[in-house]
């Protein structure tokens, strides 16, 4: 028989790897499938179930997609109270599910939504919650090893949660790669469990007045990226011209996002997204470690910067010291006339 530890927790009571599948009005955030694929490794090592958790309204399609992407089971909390997303009903529902079913590991996408409600689960359950995890594994004792960059990114710290459960982690979009959907996966009615909804509209303390989604660019799947940093000083035109010439998507460093030049959904870095294009062109980006974190999985890295001492040149394959406003259009002109840059479908 297992016994409660000093924290009053019997860790052996907790099993299964849970992955939160984030959806808004039926549209699943790609990070969910990335975590499901990575969660599979953990559940196989532990010889436990990989369980997808879906909260929202009208979730049949999402639940089936989760099974076809590798979940052994899906837990569904389906109710109008969950659409659109709000922290308090999501947190209360997720917490109740954790308390009733006791998962050992819970993975949540490090989106604004995931980072918003994760604490409302971890605090009342006294779970360990690690933010911005970039590598995960389980050791021989089944303990989650959650690694995250620390001290500005030059150190990778392993965060453990030895005495408390569940072991929770938020992981940014693009850190892991999604698997393929397998429509031949067999499942039955038992594969999907509708859980009791514990939240009532009258309990809520917030109300969504309006919600408008505009720029939903997904830079994590782009094959070519042109990214701008503080050095462009708000002048995006040259970089956009270059991006157009090679059919690349626009991205940005944190500095350019904080200045309001580019939407936060296009931010690359430790506190943004991780990208892995075959070509990454950094325009006016100095090369802070926190930015490199998000782009070091790229194929070829090109740097354009007017400061010859900018660290980005050490982290690029090819660089040019010069004024981006002159280099970008020159480059665009040369590339636009080169048939090899045409995108083949």
């Amino acid at each position: 028989m297992s016994e409660p530890n000093d924290a009053g927790i019997d860790v052996d009571e907790y099993e299964d790897v849970w992955v939160f599948v984030e959806e808004h009005a039926g549209e699943v955030m790609p990070v969910s499938w990335e975590l499901l694929e990575e969660g599979k490794q953990l559940s196989e090592k532990l010889d436990q179930d990989l369980v997808a958790l879906v909260i929202g309204e009208d979730l049949d399609d999402v639940a089936e997609a989760a099974l076809e992407r590798g979940a052994n089971r899906v837990l569904v909390a389906d109710d109008p109270v969950f659409e659109p997303y709000r922290a308090d009903p999501y947190g209360a529902q997720f917490r109740a599910m954790v308390e009733n079913r006791k998962p050992t590991i819970v993975l949540i996408g490090g989106t604004h939504t995931g980072r918003d409600f994760a604490g409302r689960v971890a605090v009342p359950t006294h779970a360990g919650l690690t933010a911005d995890v970039t590598e995960i594994d389980v050791d021989d004792d089944g303990l989650l090893q959650a690694r995250r960059p620390a001290f500005g990114g030059d150190i990778l710290a392993t965060i453990l949660c030895e005495d408390h459960r569940p072991q929770m982690a938020t992981i940014r979009p693009g850190v892991f790669e999604a698997g393929d959907r397998d429509p031949t996966v067999a499942f039955d009615a038992d594969s999907i469990t509708d859980v009791d909804v514990v939240v009532d509209e009258s309990d809520t303390v917030s109300e969504v007045l309006e919600r408008e989604i505009g720029d939903t660019a997904d830079i994590t799947e782009a094959e070519r990226i042109v990214a701008v940093g503080a050095g462009v000083e708000g002048d995006l035109e040259p970089a956009l011209e270059l991006a157009e010439s090679i059919d690349a998507k626009l991205a940005a460093s944190r500095a350019a996002v904080d200045e309001g030049w580019v939407d936060g959904s296009r931010q690359v870095g430790q506190t943004g997204k991780t990208v892995r294009p075959e070509l990454y062109v950094a325009v006016g980006i100095s090369g802070a470690i926190q930015h490199l974190e998000g782009m070091n999985k790229s194929g070829t890295v090109i740097a354009i910067n007017n400061d010859p001492n900018a660290p980005i040149f050490e982290h690029a394959d090819y660089g040019i010291v010069g004024d981006f406003a002159a280099v970008c259009p020159d480059l665009a002109e040369t590339l636009a006339s080169d048939e090899r840059t045409e995108v083949t479908p």
Partner: peptide, 19 residues
């Protein structure tokens, strides 16, 4: 609930670094 189990230095990705 959480503790630091270890630290390791991140090795930078090797790039050509040609200007």
């Amino acid at each position: 609930p959480t503790s630091v189990g270890g630290m390791e230095t991140v090795q930078p990705v090797e790039r050509k670094g040609e200007v």
